[in-house]
Amino acid sequence: MANAISPPKVLTGRRRVSPAQRRQNLYGYLFLTPWLIGFFGLFVGPGLYSFFLSFTKYDVISSPVFIATRNYVDMFTKDDLFWSSLSRTAYYAIVSVPLTVLGSMFLAILLNTQLRGITVFRTLFFMPSLVPIVASIILFKILLNSDFGLVNTALRGLGMQDPPGWFADSRWSIPSLILVRLWGSLGGTQMIIFLAGLQGIPTELYDAASIDGAGSWHRIRHVTIPLLTPTIFFNTVLGVIGALQTFAAAFIATEGGPNFSTWFFALHIWKQAFDYFNMGYAAALAWFFALVIVALTLLQMRLSKRMVFYMGE
C-alpha cells in the first residue's frame, strides 16, 4: 500500500491563472473599489494622519509642529483629568455592560416563549432602542430633574424626603446615565441577537433535559446558557467597546459634569480637540485609548477560549 501513495506535489512559483479567472478577479476588485476607497480615504488615511499628529502640537490654524513623544508623556504626567476620566469610563463600563448583557439575555429568554401576542411584547421592548439618543437623554433629563422632575415628584409623594439628585448630583450622575443606557438598550439589538441565538438552540436538547427531569431553571442553567455563550461573548465584546466609547449621552446630559463626574475619556478627547484645539494631544489620547480597547478585546478573546462553548466543537 505504501508504494501506492505518491508524495504530495510541492507547489513552487506562481499558480497559473486563466484569463477568465483574471477577469473575474478584476471584476471582484472593481466591485470592492468603492468600499476600499472609503476604507483607505476615510479610515486608514485619517487614522495614519492622526497617528502623525499625535507627535505634534497642532491647533488647526497653524501647521503641526513635531514634538516627539511629549503628548504621550504629558498625558501620564500632567493631565489631571487623564486618569480620572479613564477610571470613570471603566466604572461606567464595568457596571453597565453586565447589566445590559444579562438584562437583554433574560428579557430575550422571557420573550422567547410561545405566548399569544408575544410579537407585540417584543415590539414594545424594542421600541426604546429606536429613540435617538438625543431624544432619550432630553426625556430623561426632564423626568429626572431633581427639583421639578416627575420621578422625584413621585418619590416625594411617596414620602422620600431627599430623593436623588440624578444628573445634578455627582454621586448619581453615572447611575443616571446607566439608567438611560439600560432603557435604550435592554430591549434593543442585543436582545434581538439573543433571541436569534435562543432560536438556534435545538429543541431536542430541551426535550432530553426534560426527560432527565430538569426543571425550567435547570434547562436554562445547563442548556440555554452554555449554548448561548457565543452570543453572550459577542454581545459583551460589543458592549464593552460601546461603553468605553460613551460620549453622546454624557455630552448632552451633563457635558461632563457635575464636578467632572461624567467626564468620560471620549469626552476628554473631544474637549481637547474641538474646544481647546489641542489636536495633537487629542490624537495622542485617541491612539492611547484605541490601544486600550484593542487590548481589552484581545483579553476577552483569550478568556473566551475557556468560557465560550461552540456547538459542534
Binding site: Y29, L36, I37, F40, P46, L48
Partner: peptide, 17 residues
C-alpha cells in the same frame, strides 16, 4: 494579484490623503 491591487489602492489613497 490581490497584493498588487491593494498596494495600488493604498498608494492612491495615501497620495490623496
Amino acid at each position: 494579484s490581490r497584493r498588487q491591487f491593494l498596494k495600488t489602492m493604498g498608494i492612491t489613497a495615501a497620495a490623496g490623503v
